[in-house]
């Protein structure tokens, strides 16, 4: 019974999503065909066709998938390293007050500076190559994951810690079996925010200085006054961002079964 309702709910949701996107595209197409806007704004059909054409026809030196790969490589490397460092540091800060007291004030000075504001300095320090992009992605991810890992490590329910102690657990065992699982949902929300921030950061840093990547596509489109290229670029950015976010949710659902299962 429950499963049937759930299934129907999904059918409605997916169905309406398809209808909604189709309706959106039709509206867009209609606007370009029937109004003067068509003179400079390409329609969806043209945009999608161009999107696929660019899989073989290069933008600049590389075809579209290669640009995607440039951006993805930057995000994957910077994001992975930053997440690992931030999770460890955040948990250490949440567990040991001395680490908290040392790092927190410095972090509080850096935190309000939006990651994009580091772009000029990063270029000065690391040049215009990939090194500066890794640094920038690292920074964007680090800021948001650290805060959450820290909050997560401090979120351990004192009643549960007491219960574990009552059952004979020592500090190390409590850390592994209580503190870490309590922190996991927080860490995941940090990882998700971090991924969004990192994706924005990659696009921004490519827009400002680069020779490949999806951010480069849209900035080159701007220089050439090429709206079609803009639309293809935005579409690509949206698709990749969507896939990144969705895969993150998938991993979370797998790892945090106890919070979602049975609800």
């Amino acid at each position: 019974m429950m499963r049937k309702i759930l299934k129907n709910e999904w059918t409605v949701k997916i169905g309406s999503a398809v209808i909604a996107l189709a309706a959106f595209c039709m509206l867009w197409q209609a606007v370009t065909v029937f109004t003067g806007m068509g003179d400079f704004l390409p329609g969806p059909a043209e945009t999608f066709a161009e999107f696929f054409r660019r899989f073989v026809k290069p933008y600049g030196k590389a075809v579209l998938p290669m640009h995607m790969w440039s951006s993805l490589r930057r995000i994957l490397i910077g994001y992975t390293v930053a997440s690992a460092v931030a999770i460890v540091l955040g948990i250490v800060m949440g567990t040991y007050r001395i680490a908290d007291a040392i790092v927190m004030p410095l972090f509080n000075i850096i935190r309000p500076i939006p990651p994009v504001a580091w772009i000029p300095l990063a270029i000065l320090w690391f040049g215009i190559g990939d090194a500066s992009k890794y640094f920038l992605v690292f920074l964007a991810t680090f800021l948001s994951v650290l805060q959450n890992a820290y909050a997560g490590a401090r979120s351990a329910d004192p009643v549960l810690v007491g219960a574990a102690r009552m059952l004979g657990a020592n500090d190390g065992f409590i850390f592994r079996t209580i503190t870490l699982p309590c922190a996991v949902p927080y860490i995941f929300s940090g990882l998700q925010n971090g991924l969004t921030a990192a994706w924005g950061q990659v696009v921004a840093s490519e827009m400002i200085r680069s020779s490949a990547g999806v951010g480069w596509i849209i900035i080159r489109g701007m220089d050439n006054n090429d709206i079609l290229q803009e639309l293809v670029g935005i579409l690509t950015i949206g698709i990749i961002g969507f896939i990144l976010a969705a895969s993150m949710r998938g991993v979370e659902a797998k790892l945090c079964r106890w919070t979602t299962r049975g609800k």
């Binding site: 400079f40 994009v116 969004t196 994706w199 924005g200 696009v203 921004a204 827009m207 951010g215 849209i218 900035i219 489109g221 701007m222 006054n225 709206i227 803009e230 639309l231 670029g233 935005i234 950015i237 949206g238 698709i239 990749i240 961002g241 969507f242 990144l244 976010a245």
Partner: peptide, 14 residues
């Protein structure tokens, strides 16, 4: 899923 910033070039053209 699209960072707000990605709209900037398009808006600058328009």
């Amino acid at each position: 899923a699209i960072p707000g910033l990605a709209w900037a070039p398009l808006l600058i053209i328009l």
